[in-house]
């Protein structure tokens, strides 16, 4: 059982500056397989930057990232995706000119599993659209979908890569309470399949319902971590750093 003892993702002393601003400052944390880790903090505290660094869209100025036992710090995003890191974006990014089905299909063809038969990939993609409740929009160009539909499409696309770690950046922002419940159920289901999730989210209900562990960031630094009970019991954390939108 190689790697069973080591965490799935290990982030050590990560830092990243934009101009003179330290967006992420000496940050360390880990995520285990099948775990849901919440990343909390006010806007501008470095959560999205951390996602960018872990996914490979940004290069860190210092620190190490290990994923599944491999040092991926210098890897391009596409190689990390092939190793099992998938993400969604805070400002949703779909492929606007492709249909919903094509959006997911291409992720089936790449990602970790690289399904080679187009027919297989098509069936997989259709099943994923069904799973996120967007099957009826399969032939609609992504640019014509509503925000909620694009969010779900993005999640389906991320799942299509067969990730071991899924980075979700504010996946329920702007959704109705009913939609939030559906999303929470979906994320639980994903975790039940052994996929680890890192979640950036301001919706406290969703965070409480989902997270096993929480890391609180402020100005790029980790200022607290623990179970949701511990962290939310910490009144100062709640008031100062959970930032209402």
């Amino acid at each position: 059982m190689p790697g069973s003892a080591a965490p799935l993702l290990e982030v050590a002393s990560l830092s990243k500056a934009f101009g003179g601003l330290l967006a992420v400052d000496d940050l360390s944390f880990t995520i285990d397989s099948g775990e849901i880790l919440g990343l909390l903090g006010p806007n501008g505290s470095g959560k999205t930057t951390t996602f960018g660094l872990v996914a490979g869209a940004l290069r860190p100025d210092g620190g190490e990232i290990r994923f599944a036992g491999r040092p991926v710090t210098r890897w391009p995003a596409s190689r990390r995706a092939a190793l099992g890191i998938a993400r969604t974006f805070q400002l949703v990014r779909v492929f606007p000119g492709l249909t919903a089905l094509e959006n997911v299909l291409v992720a089936c063809l790449y990602g970790r599993r690289r399904v080679s038969s187009p027919a297989r990939a098509g069936a997989d993609a259709a099943a994923l659209l069904e799973r996120v409740g967007a099957a009826h929009k399969r032939n609609t160009p992504a640019r014509d979908l509503t925000l909620g539909e694009r969010r779900r499409l993005e999640i389906a696309r991320a799942l299509a890569t067969h990730p071991r770690l899924l980075l979700l950046d504010e996946p329920v922002a702007g959704l109705t309470p009913t939609e939030v419940d559906a999303a929470v159920a979906l994320f639980r289901g994903i975790r039940a399949e052994g996929v680890a999730i890192a979640l950036v989210e301001h919706n406290v209900r969703a965070v409480r319902a989902l997270c096993d562990r929480i890391v609180v960031l402020h100005a790029g630094r980790k200022i607290a971590q623990g179970t949701p009970e511990d962290v939310f019991a910490h009144a100062a954390v709640v008031e100062a750093y959970l930032g209402r939108r």
Binding site: A57, S78, A86, R93, V94, F95, L98, R112, R114
Partner: peptide
């Protein structure tokens, strides 16, 4: 596969990289 990857890159390079397509 190559053609679909290329289409993804055309539509959004960052998102294409994020699903494993080397832009």
């Amino acid at each position: 596969r190559f053609g679909r990857g290329l289409a993804a890159v055309r539509e959004d390079e960052t998102a294409a990289e994020a699903i494993g397509v080397g832009a």
